[in-house]
Design a protein around this nucleic acid. Structure first.
Length: 591
RNA sequence: GCGCCCGUAGCUCAUCUGGAUAGAGCGCGAGACUUCUAAUCUUGAGGCAGCAGGUUCGAGUCCUGCCGGGCGCACCA
């Protein structure tokens, strides 16, 4: 692959370029005004394939600027398109669409491009600036509290974030996968106390039931044991103040180890783990507060009582440093510090995001839908801080909706309080990494989804994961069989490929533009749906061979067509593989 | 009460950032194959895209209002 041509053009990229050139020429002809913006102009396959291979709406979009009607402008464009040897026909349809059919040689060339690019087919440079520098995108995901193992609730965000990161990488971005460790709030003190109890247990004390308010899970037993081993009975009857910090640090470290190993089961590895505690030590929140106060975005004020439902019984008005998030559409100004003087989560979080922004050209957070209420304030605060620093960057928060666990159509109940919840590790053990990943990506993230254990492990064509992997495995086993029978893939006679085969190439050829669209929309699930369709097209072609022996990949009496079809199937396999790699799902070679 | 997300075939979901006659799978109807290119195949019916307006050459897609479902509404994280 060392001789991979760097700028091998894919069909869709090259036709987009051709259209741009034609529109430029029309400017030269005086038909379009100089420097006409091409906003909204698209070149894409029409939904209805009977309309042709490619369609453009250019005439409709630009008619106004050309001071003419769409069809008249379309004629000018068609005139130039028709002169292109790759275009077998170009015609005007409907309100002014231009439909094109391309010469078979174009699709054959695409097949060569897939072969030449191999693992890089579908990659793009959309993340690269003019000077070739890749945009730095920070994707923060998971960021679960370090108080226990990951459970189902974390799973979807983890997979979506990871696939999005891969998708952006594949599209030429310089991606940092980041995990924010909330190791500074009250919940880690609770963790430390819970660990202390398990420490006493490990020293042989009878601890009885775990008191309300502490973490009951068994996963803390080894933590207690490790602490007992490290410290002996030094903290057995010591006051909390003497051991809290030690136990907090120790327990958080253990929990992060646990979480890392859970993530590894999903095939996820973050580049960067940022500690909230370290942020405080570095004085970042103080710096942020100072800047915000200087710019009148933080003031001392009294928080309103909660609206709607009855206010908490212990509610009393207190003066707190408030961020003016109402200026940015929030319901309420939000406190950055508690009455105790400690930072609120939000106070630390805005400083954290400001820190991330320094080393990124864009930031994306993947959050659970239960954090939806905090999006406005953090976006507002980050916008203010980065703007103030003279470098405002795009900052998206993608909300991932809840997953309802099901078994045979019945919702699965779980209670976090009792420590009785489905852990990520359990789930992966039961259904496997690939199933979890693919299933989590087979629904747009902002919609709720059901995850039925019984359905997702089913090995039939009704199960998308299986269906896509099966296509890849089928290609592989067919290649093996071909080799045994003395056939080999060869591009020597690929011009003999017929209509059905060209249709397959056309579908594979969608991959690069689909990747770009998915990357710019930040929607990795589109890749999953595309792969399902591509696999479907492959299976359909394969099934043709059931009744028509002449349509099989291996035709005994015809090594030429067999070689060409095997070459085609190799490239389909390559495309499936590239897509699956983005999703982090294994392209298996046998089922 | 307020905020965010969702609402598309009987069911589960797509619809490529506004395009042409809204597509798949399941299920249902009809047929094929009795087997290894079958962990099946072909084919048919099925829709007022929650409802009502608006924006425009064009709306499932954007805007407004309602209806229904989910999530959230601490100085928690």
């Amino acid at each position: 692959m060392s001789d991979t041509p760097k700028n091998t053009q894919t069909v869709h990229a090259s036709f987009a370029a051709k259209l741009t050139a034609i529109l430029g020429a029309l400017e030269g002809d005086g038909i379009l005004p100089a420097d006409t913006p091409h906003r909204g102009v698209t070149v894409e396959p029409p939904r209805d394939p009977s309309h042709g291979d490619l369609a453009t709406n250019a005439a409709m979009v630009l008619a106004k600027q050309a001071k003419t009607n769409p069809r008249a402008l379309a004629e000018k464009i068609v005139e130039k398109l028709s002169a292109d040897p790759d275009v077998s026909s170009a015609e005007i349809a409907g309100p002014g669409f231009i439909n094109m059919r391309l010469e078979p040689s174009v699709w054959i060339a695409e097949l060569h491009a897939i072969a030449a690019m191999g693992d890089t087919y579908g990659q793009s440079s959309m993340g690269e600036a003019q000077d070739g520098k890749r945009a730095r995108v920070n994707v923060e995901y998971v960021s679960a509290n370090p108080t226990g193992p990951l459970h189902m609730g974390h799973c979807r965000g983890a997979v979506v974030g990871d696939a999005l990161a891969s998708l952006l990488e594949f599209s030429g971005h310089d991606v940092t996968r980041e995990y924010y460790i909330n190791d500074a709030g009250g919940q880690v003190d609770v963790l430390a106390r819970s660990a202390h109890l398990r420490y006493l247990e490990a020293l042989g004390e009878d601890i009885g039931d775990i008191p309300e308010g502490l973490y009951p899970g068994d996963y803390l037993k080894p933590v207690g044991a490790a602490l007992a081993k490290a410290h002996g009975d030094a903290f057995k009857s010591a006051p909390e103040a003497q051991w809290l910090e030690t136990f907090r640090t120790g327990a958080v470290n253990e929990m992060m180890e646990l979480i890392r190993s859970d993530l590894a089961l999903l095939g996820i590895e973050h580049d960067l783990f940022s500690s909230e505690a370290a942020l405080h030590v570095a004085g970042k929140p103080d710096a942020a507060e100072k800047w915000l106060r200087d710019h009148d975005l933080v003031y001392d004020g009294v928080l309103e009582a909660p609206k709607g439902k009855a206010p908490p019984e212990d509610w009393e008005p207190v003066e707190l440093p408030l961020f003016r998030s109402t200026q940015f559409g929030d319901d309420q100004d939000r406190p950055i510090k508690k009455s105790s003087g400690a930072w609120t989560y939000f106070g630390a979080d805005l400083a954290y995001h400001f820190q991330k922004a320094e080393k990124a050209d864009a930031m994306i957070n993947i959050w659970g839908a239960d954090h939806a209420g905090t999006v406005k304030r953090i976006k507002a605060a980050v916008a203010a801080l980065t703007k103030g620093a003279g470098r405002e960057i795009p900052f998206d928060v993608k909300l991932v909706q809840m997953v309802q666990l099901m078994r045979d159509g019945e919702p699965l109940k779980m209670s976090k309080r009792s420590g009785n919840f489905v852990t990520l590790a359990d789930m992966i053990e039961e259904v496997g990494k690939d199933v979890v990943r693919f299933t989590m990506l087979s629904r747009k993230p902002e919609a709720q989804m059901d995850f039925d254990f019984a359905k997702v492990v089913e090995a039939s064509k009704d199960n998308p994961v299986f269906y896509v992997q099966y296509a890849h495995a089928r290609i592989h086993s067919n290649m093996r069989k071909a080799a045994e029978e003395g056939f080999a893939a060869s591009d020597e006679h690929i011009d003999q490929l017929g209509t059905e085969e060209l249709e397959l190439i056309k579908q594979a050829a969608q991959f690069p533009r689909l990747v770009e669209a998915a990357a710019s929309a930040r929607e990795p699930h589109r890749i999953a749906f595309y792969l399902y369709e591509l696999a479907g097209a492959f299976h359909a072609y394969w099934n043709l061979g059931n009744t028509r022996v002449d349509k099989r990949f291996i035709v005994a009496q015809n090594p030429e067509i067999s070689g060409a079809r095997l070459f085609l199937s190799e490239q389909l396999g390559q495309t499936l593989r590239n897509g699956l790699r983005i999703l982090g799902v294994q392209a298996v070679e046998e089922m």
